[in-house]
Nucleic acid binder design. Structure first.
Lengths: 164, 164
DNA sequence: AATAAATATTACATAACTAAACTATATCGG
DNA sequence: CCGATATAGTTTAGTTATGTAATATTTATT
């Protein structure tokens, strides 16, 4: 799966020739992000498949794992994971059916629903985390520590500009 | 839509506390890419909607626009756009129905299919490109020229490590 | 000639998005 | 306190998108 970026760059060059106003640099960045996201997403799905969860479900689980107290409402999850609320209902249903999370009504605001990880959910997370850590490590293999910090800084700057 | 990254960082900190082997820096990078991709993708879809094409269709059109000679096979497109071949058939069907591309059998290898942009396809591309250029510009607004080049370099390095 | 590999399509199953309707609760202005 | 309005979450239906696996056809290999 040698998805070299070179052909994409050649196409951008041709595009700029045909349409000189086309901003090469921003387009390169956007296409790079797209390429990287795709590979990362596919890798994660492949790694998670044996554990019976897909990437969106993994994201929800990790959001809950990383929340102090471990309680989140569906709205919290929607914000955190960038999913639509209709999706959250579907995904949390799946996680409930698998026994990974637990759903109960909130006491202080009875419109709300509180989701928590079950013991089984935490156990599953901690069973796939070793592999996930390995994957994350491999995915940033080529980058030195300085590179990683630079990249973090620049991506944050870019994200900042997007959410205005 | 203030999708600040701060909550995500707090969750990563908690995750690292609970599971010390968790590699914070790689995880930050992956989550940043995911956030950025999502916003970029949604923005592009919104911009393209009035033109009757979605993001994947736009990608295919731009791949063809940027290909010298303008001829591509479905396999070429699948590689270039990172789509599954079954998807390519569906997407190119849609583009054919809209009269934006043309499909014909290849002469030298009769397994192959050759796709070309129609005049209408090129016209549509050049009608939405002004808006797309504006969007691309805004999406990288916050980054100076040096930042953009640094970011390009680092993303390429990361992508390199992914496709081993 | 037989077998394997490549190309594209098809059919089926899953997943996701959208928009609206619905339940229940909370909040605010009078 | 009352009634209007807003919020939280779910549900439904319809549409669109994506992924998987099998198939037909043509070309390559041995």
């Amino acid at each position: 799966m040698t998805s070299s970026f070179a052909p994409t760059e050649r196409r951008l060059a041709v595009t700029c020739e045909r349409y000189p106003a086309f901003p090469r640099e921003p387009a390169v960045l956007v296409r790079l992000v797209k390429h990287i996201y795709k590979v990362v997403h596919d890798d994660a799905n492949a790694t998670l498949k044996p554990y019976g969860v897909n990437h969106p479900e993994y994201n929800l689980l990790m959001m809950m794992y990383g929340t102090p107290g471990g309680e989140m409402t569906p709205s919290d999850l929607a914000d955190a994971a960038g999913e639509k609320s209709a999706n959250i209902t579907r995904l949390t249903n799946q996680l409930c059916e698998k026994g990974l999370i637990h759903r109960k009504g909130s006491n202080d605001d009875r419109r709300k629903v509180v989701l928590t990880l079950t013991a089984g959910g935490e156990a599953l997370i901690e069973s796939f985390l070793p592999e996930i850590c390995g994957l994350l490590g491999r995915q940033t293999d080529k980058l030195g520590v300085d590179d990683q910090h630079q990249l973090e800084r620049l991506l944050k700057k870019m994200l900042d500009g997007l959410t205005d």
